[in-house]
Measured scan of single mutants.
Amino acid sequence: MATKAVCVLKGDGPVQGIINFEQKESNGPVKVWGSIKGLTEGLHGFHVHEFGDNTAGCTSAGPHFNPLSRKHGGPKDEERHVGDLGNVTADKDGVADVSIEDSVISLSGDHCIIGRTLVVHEKADDLGKGGNEESTKTGNAGSRLACGVIGIAQ
C-alpha cells in the first residue's frame, strides 16, 4: 500500500500549488496538507474528481469521485461524495494553506484517490446545502481553477 501521495495543481491562470497526502494505516485517516497560491481571497471548493484525465484541462477530470452514488455534502457529513473535501481558505495575498484530515478518502482500496484528479474551484462549496439540484452534485463551487493528478510519492 502506498502511504504517501502528492498532487501538483496547475491551471490556465495564476492558480498553482502542491498538496501532499499521507496515510499511516490502511483504514486510518489521510492527512492532506500543502499550499495553493494565486486564488482570490475567501473560500474555494476542494474536491477529488473521478478521473485522472487532464487532456482537456480540468474539465476532463469528470464529476466528483463518488463510488457510493451519494449526494454532495461537506467533509463531516454522512451523506457526501468520497471526493468531497470541503473548502480551502485563501488569505488576502491569495494563498491557501491547506491542513485537512479526512477519514473517507484513502490511498488504497475502494476509496483510493491515487490516479484521480484534485481540483480547486472558483467559488465556495455550499456543502450540499444550497437548496438546488446543482448543490447536491457540485456544491455550486463554480469553474475549475486548477487541477492535477494525484500520484504515489516516496
Rank of each mutant, 00 (worst) to 15 (best):
A2G: 10
T3N: 06
A5W: 00
V6S: 13
V6C: 03
V6I: 15
V8M: 12
L9F: 04
L9M: 12
K10S: 14
K10A: 12
D12C: 10
D12I: 00
D12T: 05
D12R: 13
G17C: 11
I19L: 07
E22K: 06
E22G: 05
Q23P: 04
Q23G: 00
Q23S: 06
Q23T: 04
K24S: 08
K24G: 10
K24C: 07
E25M: 11
E25C: 05
S26T: 13
G28W: 07
G28V: 07
G28N: 15
G28D: 07
P29M: 07
P29R: 07
P29Q: 14
V30T: 09
V30L: 07
V30D: 02
V30F: 03
K31I: 12
K31R: 15
V32A: 11
W33E: 14
G34K: 04
G34E: 03
G34V: 06
S35E: 12
I36Y: 02
I36V: 09
I36C: 03
K37W: 13
K37H: 15
K37M: 15
G38F: 00
L39C: 01
L39H: 03
L39M: 08
T40L: 08
T40Y: 03
T40W: 03
E41Q: 15
G42N: 02
L43T: 15
H44T: 01
G45C: 08
G45A: 13
F46Y: 01
H47V: 09
H47W: 00
V48G: 00
V48R: 00
H49Y: 12
G52E: 11
D53H: 14
N54Q: 10
N54S: 11
T55Y: 04
T55R: 14
T55K: 14
T59N: 13
T59M: 06
T59D: 11
S60A: 13
A61H: 11
A61T: 08
A61N: 08
G62H: 14
P63A: 15
H64W: 03
F65R: 06
N66A: 05
N66T: 08
N66E: 06
L68E: 09
L68V: 07
L68Q: 15
S69V: 15
R70A: 02
K71L: 14
K71D: 05
K71W: 13
K71R: 11
H72L: 10
H72D: 06
G73I: 01
G73N: 03
G73E: 07
G74E: 13
K76C: 12
E78A: 09
E78V: 12
E78D: 13
E79W: 08
E79M: 12
R80V: 05
V82K: 02
G83R: 12
D84A: 04
D84Q: 04
D84S: 10
G86R: 03
N87D: 07
N87R: 04
V88L: 13
V88Q: 02
A90N: 00
D93L: 13
D93Y: 13
D93Q: 14
G94H: 04
G94N: 03
G94A: 04
A96R: 00
A96M: 00
D97F: 15
S99F: 07
S99M: 11
I100R: 06
E101F: 15
E101I: 05
E101N: 15
D102A: 08
S103V: 05
S103M: 13
I105C: 02
S106C: 08
S106I: 02
S106L: 05
L107T: 01
L107H: 02
G109Q: 01
D110Q: 09
H111D: 08
C112G: 11
C112R: 07
I113C: 04
G115K: 00
G115V: 06
R116L: 08
T117F: 10
T117C: 12
L118F: 03
L118P: 10
V120H: 00
V120M: 01
E122K: 11
E122N: 09
E122A: 13
E122V: 05
E122Y: 07
K123F: 12
K123N: 11
K123P: 01
K123W: 06
K123C: 10
K123Q: 14
D125P: 06
D125F: 10
D125T: 07
L127Y: 07
G128Q: 07
G128H: 02
G128T: 03
G128E: 04
K129Q: 14
G130K: 15
G130F: 06
G131P: 09
N132Q: 13
N132I: 07
N132F: 14
N132K: 07
N132R: 10
E133F: 08
E133D: 13
E134G: 14
E134S: 04
S135H: 04
K137N: 09
T138D: 09
G139P: 05
N140Y: 06
N140F: 08
N140G: 10
N140V: 05
N140M: 07
S143A: 12
R144D: 07
R144F: 15
R144H: 09
L145T: 14
L145G: 09
L145D: 10
A146S: 07
A146R: 02
G148W: 02
I152N: 08
I152E: 02
A153L: 14
